[in-house]
Design a protein around this nucleic acid. Structure first.
Lengths: 335, 335
DNA sequence: TTGTAAGCGTTATCAC
DNA sequence: GTGATAACGCTTACAA
């Protein structure tokens, strides 16, 4: 591949001049600029961005760490981020953390060592303390879907507690009093927050969560189906089920059908996230909207504003979930 | 961040020695090695991989270009790739091509300029000619889900024609004779190949595809629902519907229900891809399995073998689809 | 407006 | 075994 040196030779100018036309900031005479441009064209020159990064300690690339590369949730998030950066001419390096502390830290290290200008982190297993330490180092970062008090200005998050509240509140309003709950892994903050919202809603009706109606799932379809089986097997009656995300709700819906139950006739189900397929389940899943794509976009904007000085950009840090009523929730028959 | 130079100072050795212990290839005395290791530890030294790449023209990173970052299909693919590389200590840089020629070419250029050691390309809009030209340049690449005769040894693909055949063949065997078809965008090779398979299966039964029962969709849910509406509105009767992918099938299933039809009682539906949620639709979607995660993994192995000399690795280039019968296809009532 | 030259943090080729 | 030192391809003062 052609280098800047060959371009400068062909154009009959110095390295510096070529560099200047590439970064078209300095004043270069139109004539010289043209000569250089022609030479570049002729050689099919493409700047080596590794060398650019090393020299400028600026890579125009942003590191993204997500838990997984698959799944409806992360896909939306990545798309929101990538779209915003592409429009700004920045690029994206992606790593997966798999919700494990060691892998997450490793991923962050990798991203940092690639001289990313900034990081967007969706981390779950790493400690707050680690993040606080990280914030003292040179690479700026935003946290997606995580609240760390000491790092508040770097957090873009959803009010998960409110979402949890909204879901259960909806059920209560429909007359349900015996409400089962399939949670996410309780070591994850968002899973806990959603459950706390659930508890708060119950408390408003002088109810408390029933241990016999609680199942800790894994945020995946199979967690939902296993959870439902367990709940049904326990024998404790319930007229509604809240699942801490849509994947588990979808698994629960399918398991319910297999076990001969009809939703919402036999019991109502509500999910969380409003992922794409929630509209295509049967019955259509009532759920809580999580504007994840918009939040990804906002994280990207934060970077554009804080790191690339695009000061006109406005950033919203806390997002509110809201209820999406569809067909999987119905009124309770006898309150 | 500490540099190799500071490490060498602290350890009282030369740059070269530090470099040697990092790449633990050369013979360094245990004593020296320990000194260096201690110094690294003390400084929290992390090699700057940009500098490493520049000096070694080896980045240990592989560029991946996919059409989209979201959707059940690409997510699985990326996961398959990432898992294989992570195990090998390689890293991944991802760009999205959005099925547009300009964006795809731009993405490839970006990846090349980041000194990726190799590229894994899932490109749809770029021409064969472009790829052939690209193959003359220095960066090696594999093509996923694309067959270019001149580049056969770099292609990892699914026999889409066979898949299309299998889907329709299944329907025919169940006694269906009036079969509607919702295709993908016909400018895409895989969409065309699947349709050709459909035609071949029909031909075996002395049937031909009926234009009035053909709708060109977009590989997305809404394409499936629009397609079904259009087919139903056209008034031409059919007892089975093949959708060129699962997303459209899911959209069709939902639309059918809304319009008062029951699947498979009123007509059968078959999809293509066997994405994760195909098991969670209602009825469970009969479909054609596309081992996309395994194929992503295989693309990664191709790179490991060809680029990183891991000769023990075996690569399979052509994958075969197979039928996954579930609940959305039933026997035709009257043949 | 253009050129010279000193980095950027490594690797790799020589010597010793 | 270990140490100088020249690349790697570019940016960026500082001069001219």
């Amino acid at each position: 591949m052609a280098t800047i040196y060959q371009v400068s030779e062909l154009a009959g100018v110095s390295l510096a001049t070529v560099s200047r036309v590439m970064n078209n900031n300095a004043r270069v005479s139109d004539k010289t600029r043209d000569k250089v441009l022609v030479a570049m064209e002729q050689l099919g020159y493409r700047p080596n961005s590794i060398a650019q990064s090393l020299a400028s300690s600026r890579s125009n690339s942003i590191g993204i760490l997500v838990s997984e590369l698959h799944g409806p949730f992360y896909g939306e998030m990545l798309t929101g981020i990538e779209a915003e950066f592409r429009a700004a001419g920045k690029h994206v390096i992606i790593a997966a953390g798999h919700s494990e502390r060691a892998t997450e830290e490793e991923g962050i290290d990798f991203l940092r060592s690639r001289s990313c200008d900034a990081l967007i982190l969706h981390v779950e297993a790493v400690t707050d303390q680690y993040l606080i330490e990280l914030s003292k180092k040179e690479t700026p970062f935003v946290l997606l879907n995580r609240q760390v008090a000491a790092l508040a200005e770097r957090c873009i998050s959803l009010d998960n507690e409110l979402g949890g509240y909204l879901a259960t509140h909806h059920l209560l309003q429909q007359g349900h009093r015996h409400i089962a709950y399939i949670a996410g892994p309780m070591w994850k903050t968002d899973a806990r927050d959603r459950f706390h919202g659930h508890q708060r809603a119950l408390a408003e009706y002088q109810l408390t969560a029933d241990d016999a109606l609680f199942f800790e799932g894994d945020f995946r379809e199979t967690g939902g189906s296993k959870g439902l089986q367990w709940l049904l097997a326990s024998g404790r009656p319930f007229s509604a089920l809240v699942c801490a995300n849509d994947e588990m709700a979808s698994g629960a819906l399918t398991a319910a059908r297999e076990l001969g139950y009809e939703v919402p006739a036999n019991f109502s189900v509500i999910g969380f996230d409003n992922v794409n397929f929630a509209y295509y389940t049967y019955p259509k899943l009532s759920t809580i909207d999580y504007p994840i794509s918009a939040m990804g976009q906002m994280a990207a904007r934060w970077v554009l504003q804080q790191v690339y000085q695009q000061s006109s950009i406005v950033v919203q840090q806390v997002f509110s979930p809201h209820l999406i009523p569809r067909d999987s929730v119905a009124e309770a028959l006898h309150t």
